[in-house]
Design a protein around this nucleic acid. Structure first.
Lengths: 140, 140
DNA sequence: TTATTAGTCTACAAAGTTTGTAGAGTTTAT
DNA sequence: ATAAACTCTACAAACTTTGTAGACTAATAA
């Protein structure tokens, strides 16, 4: 399941996308609008900034803003950043690969091959959906 | 990511499937063959028994055995049992449904609809792969 | 240049989950 | 009766997630 961190990130990104015209937005404003602990949200926004998704301005009139267009921020990117690997096994992860210790030969391990399929099917969706796809219905 | 519990379950089921002819198999034998803590494995096998996947015999000559054919035990069943929901959000789970508190209307919530797609794509694989598909290449 | 505002950073704490252990109890075959 | 082997309860260690506290830094405006 997606962690709260991930869900909060989507909420915050949706809010920023819907208010792009207003320039920099306060953490506090997002936290109140989306009912998220402000301090917790700080960490999340900082992660998004370090990843190059958000920019920020300090001092009076400061806040956070989108650096990329909403339609350029894929769900996969955000999930990987805040939730971790999308794959179900480390040996099948594209971004967090590790040997799993179970398959001696990944080319013939049945579990490995099945989990590759699951990963690819999942990615075919979340690599092609973006923050833009989240807004519009006023649901998130 | 799949938990160790889930992976151990697949290992144990594979072992039982490959040794169906030998009748009841000791926990200890599986634990040693697959290098799993015996006490931990006990819990897992008990879960599988309570779910109707395995049967057991107590006392001398006892052990665990498959109740269903390997090709009737889907990966989805085992993952749900030991790993929890397959869906990424509670509001999208078929077996562990809960309101997520984010979507006021599931019929129009964009995130909900996307997560339904992810769930369905995943299920299309793991509902159709079984323990039988894990054995044969001697990898698990 | 000083006060204020707002993001940054480090550290920690509470809660929950996963993983694993201990030991007594129960059932069955011999 | 005895030993073998599953069953059950309880607990503990390790890890992760979620959230909090407070000092620090940068930018703006008076």
């Amino acid at each position: 399941m997606l962690s709260k961190k991930t869900k909060y990130a989507f909420h915050a990104l949706s809010y920023l996308a819907e208010n792009q015209d207003k320039g920099a937005i306060l953490i506090q404003e997002i936290a109140e609008a989306k009912n998220i602990s402000q301090k917790f949200l700080e960490c999340i926004l900082l992660d998004l900034k370090k990843a190059g998704v958000l920019g920020s301005k300090k001092g009076k009139g400061g806040g956070y803003y989108l650096i990329k267009k909403p339609e350029e921020i894929t769900l996969a990117r955000i999930i990987r950043l805040l939730n971790g690997p999308i794959a179900w096994l480390p040996c099948v992860s594209l971004n967090y690969y590790e040997k799993c210790g179970d398959c001696q030969d990944e080319a013939t391990c049945n579990m490995h091959l099945i989990m590759c399929q699951v990963r690819d099917q999942t990615l075919s969706i979340v690599e092609n959906k973006t923050v833009q796809d989240l807004i519009g219905s006023k649901q998130l």
